[in-house]
Every structure is written in structure tokens, then in C-alpha cells.
Amino acid sequence: MRHIYKYTSPACNKMVLLVIATILAMGNTLIAQDTTATSATEDTSASTVVKKKYVKSTFEGNYLIDEQTVMVPIKGTLEFGIHHRFGPTNNGFTDLFGIFGGANMRLGFAYVPISNLQVGFGANNNNMVVDFNAKYALLKQTKDNRMPVSVTLYANAAMDTRKRTSSLPIVTFSDRLTFFNQLLIARKITNAFSVQAGINLTHFNNVEGYYDDNKNILPKLKNDHLSFCIGGRYKISEKTAIIVNYDQPLTQHPMNNPNPNLSIGLDMRTSGHDFQVFIGNYGYTLPQDNNLLNHNDFTKGQFVIGFNITRLYNF
């Protein structure tokens, strides 16, 4: 007989290494960028310097449905975001296609203190999780095509803040933590059409486990999960775009393998707001939850309606 039991990775320190590696990688990039800038200045005496012109508005804002975009707003921008993922649409008018069936929500703030770097935090109602995140534009597509793509790194750390009880699988502090790292690459192909792909690494310090027939505790899921995403935007008017995204899990787990996600929606942008409404399979507001725990299946018509609203302030 099998019992459900919490399984903590013996190698949960890997998450610390993961965070350190991410910070080091970002640090190296910052130094590398500074070095490049110095070289360009030195070159001015020798020859005419052509200022790099970056391609703008690859996407309308920070989000492409459930994913980040390569975009980092201009320095001094404060973003307030409201994210909703409603219940399953399967019940039809009974709960108005899930809209009245409860929702996962996130309220978040993000700020751009220096060019190309955004830092933020958010609060999620699912398990009362708080998240801290950083996003750095490593490379930006240039108009002369010398740099044909934009590349951005995104990382977050999230913590389950619920009070510890015997019914929750939380023993130590590290059991509360989950992480998500993402490398995004995008290209604005025409003024209307942009595409983006990304590779994602999710890490849960603590995953659900079970007793096998020999009373050994085994994990249902691996602690690390790899996936990729691909998406795009097509502008149908000056302020409105169709947005799509697809996520494919890559890691095979002992059981409870997560399902892929297919989503489509509309993006409406104004000077200070970005509003997205969409339908898709992902029902959580944090990328690590979506990537590891999604069991909505588009082949079975299991979709949820959701929206992202962001308000931008410039300081």
C-alpha cells in the first residue's frame, strides 16, 4: 500500500548553487558590458563611432501570457501588475466558464533601477507564496542586424509563507522555497511580428513523495524540471496584438508528469497600461508552479481564462 509522504531532496543545496551561479552569471555580464562600453569610447579617437540603435517594442510589455518577455522597461520604470487565472472553463455557464469559480491571483511590483536590470517582488494567493525576481537584458537586437536577437535572463525565488502545521509538508525553512530560471531569446521580425523562445529550469526544494511496497520513501517528481517555451506576438492594430505561447516539459518524472501548455490571447497597450486577456492551460501565477504542477490538458479541453494588467509609472 502506498502512502503520500513529503520527500525532501538530499541535494537541496543545489538550489543555493543555482542562485549563486545565476548571480555570478549576471555579475559577469555587467562587467562584460562595462568593458565593451570602455572599448567603444577608446575607439572614438581612431574612427567614427556609429551609435548602436536598438530595436524597440519587441513586445508590448514584460509578459507574454504566462511567460516573461525579453523586454526590460526603461530605467526608472515602476510596474504594478495584477494577474488572475480563473477556474477551469469546463463547467460552462454554471460558474461562467470558471470566472466565478475562484482564481489564482498575484499582485506584483517591479522596478528598473539601472538600465537593462529589473528587480521585483510579488504576493500570490496560492499557498500564500511571495516571490522575488530579477530580469536582465543580456543582449538587445540592433537595427543594423549586427545583433539579430535579444537575449534576456530571468530568475526568481519564491517562498511558501503559510504557517507550519502537521498537515503541510513543511519541516525546515528550505522546504518552503522554489526557484525558476529562464533564458529567453527573441527577434522582432517585422514591426508587427515578434517571436520568442526560452529554456526554463524549475527547482522545488521539496516535492511530494510516497512509500513504496518496501516502505522506502520515493519522490513522485524530480526536484529539477527542464522545459522550453515558444511564443509570439502579431499586431493587428497600432495598440492591439494577438499573443500566443506554448510550453513543453522536457524532464520525465517518476509519476505526475506535467502537461504542456497552449495559450492564446489579446494584448492591448496604452502609454501607461498593458492589458492581456487570454485562454490557456496554465492555471497558476508563478512560472515554477505552472511548469511542474500543470495537469490541465489541452487535448481534453481543460483551459482557464486569465488576464494580466500592468500599470507603468516613470520616475
Partner: peptide, 14 residues
Amino acid sequence: IASGKEVWSLHCMS
């Protein structure tokens, strides 16, 4: 002009 129009659409047109 195309770049200007893009900025106009976002910030000025409303």
C-alpha cells in the same frame, strides 16, 4: 517617420 509613428501610437494618439 515609422519610428515616430510607433511612439505616437503609444503615447500621443489617445
